[in-house]
Computed example of a mutant assay.
Amino acid sequence: MTALTPRNVPALLLRLREESFSGTVRVSGLPGGSIHLRNGLVGAIETPGAPTVTSALLTSGRISDEDWLAACAAEPDADRLGGHLVAEGLTGAAELEVVCTAAVFDAAFAMALSPPGSWELSDRESALVAEPGVEPRQLTEETSRRMALLSRLWGPPGELTRVRPAPVAGAGPRGSDGWLARRHRDVLAGVNGRRTPRDIAFALGRGLYAVMLDLIRMEALNLVQWETRTTADGRPSTAPRVPQADTITAVRAPEAAPLPKRRPGGAPPAQDVGPKKGG
Rank of each mutant, 00 (worst) to 15 (best):
T47K: 07
E46R: 13
A56Q: 11
N222Y: 02
Q244H: 12
R194H: 15
Q225P: 00
A220P: 00
V134R: 05
P240H: 13
E75M: 10
L180Q: 14
L41I: 08
E46T: 13
E159S: 13
L30M: 07
S118I: 07
E97W: 07
R241M: 09
G175H: 03
P167K: 14
R146F: 01
A171M: 05
H36I: 10
R217H: 13
P115R: 15
E142P: 00
E88K: 14
G33F: 02
F202S: 04
V187P: 01
A3Y: 04
E135I: 12
V98Y: 11
A127D: 08
G279M: 06
W226L: 15
E142Y: 03
L223A: 07
D272A: 15
V53C: 00
A110N: 00
E227T: 15
F109H: 08
G158A: 14
G117W: 05
T52V: 02
G61N: 10
A71T: 06
S237K: 03
P173D: 14
V187C: 05
R38M: 07
L188V: 04
A73E: 15
N192E: 11
G89E: 04
P173Y: 07
E120Y: 01
G172C: 03
M147T: 11
L223Y: 00
L37W: 04
G175A: 12
R182M: 06
L204F: 05
I45K: 03
T140P: 00
G32M: 04
P48Y: 07
A103Y: 02
P269N: 11
F21V: 09
G178L: 06
A256H: 05
L153Q: 07
V168T: 08
A56N: 04
A267F: 12
P197H: 10
P264C: 00
L37R: 05
S114V: 01
A250Y: 01
P243V: 10
A148C: 03
V273K: 01
R235A: 13
G170Q: 10
R229A: 14
R262D: 03
A148N: 08
A130G: 09
V53S: 02
A110F: 00
C72Q: 15
G265N: 10
L121S: 13
R38E: 13
T54P: 00
T24Y: 02
K277V: 12
A171K: 07
E125M: 13
N222C: 03
V251L: 12
P132I: 11
A50F: 01
G158Q: 09
G23P: 10
G33D: 02
T143Q: 04
G29N: 07
S60R: 14
L204E: 04
R17P: 01
D199W: 10
W119V: 12
D177Y: 10
K277T: 11
E46L: 13
A166C: 01
S151Y: 09
D233C: 08
A11I: 03
R145Y: 09
L69I: 09
D272C: 14
A203S: 13
R195F: 10
P76E: 06
L121K: 12
T247P: 00
S60W: 00
R174F: 14
R263S: 12
G32P: 04
A94D: 15
E46S: 13
A70S: 15
S176L: 14
D65F: 08
A148T: 09
V25I: 12
P136M: 12
L85P: 04
